[in-house]
Amino acid sequence: MRLITHNMLQCHVKNCNDNNFPLRLEEVEVELIEADFQPEFLQNIVGKLEWPAFVNTAVQLGNTSLPATIPDNAKDNEEFLKVLHSALLETHVQQGKMVCPNCSHVYPIKDGIPNMLLAEHEI
């Protein structure tokens, strides 16, 4: 699971509606896997991210290279796009768990696959 996917996942336990994003990463194994740098893609996707959640998650994983806000010149700022690329697309969470900050529900991550399934009574 790349961090871009983590940025898209939200707790969906029944009646858990507030403060349920982003899911907190715990006991994770992270792997850095090189990927082709594609500035155009990054320029398009950056607006679809929940930026503060993304920055906080990167910091949880020890990556402090991202700025607190998206720079005004993001589209032409190659240095920014490179740190974004590395955090968003090259950082893979292979094992661990995601914990809802509100209801503490645990979603496991195994072999790079997050499991968002809930038991019948939790839906």
Partner: peptide, 13 residues
């Protein structure tokens, strides 16, 4: 890939 039913967990994001 997300192990889930249809789109559970992917909305509203």
């Amino acid at each position: 890939t997300v192990e889930t039913s249809l789109v559970q967990g992917l909305l509203p994001r």
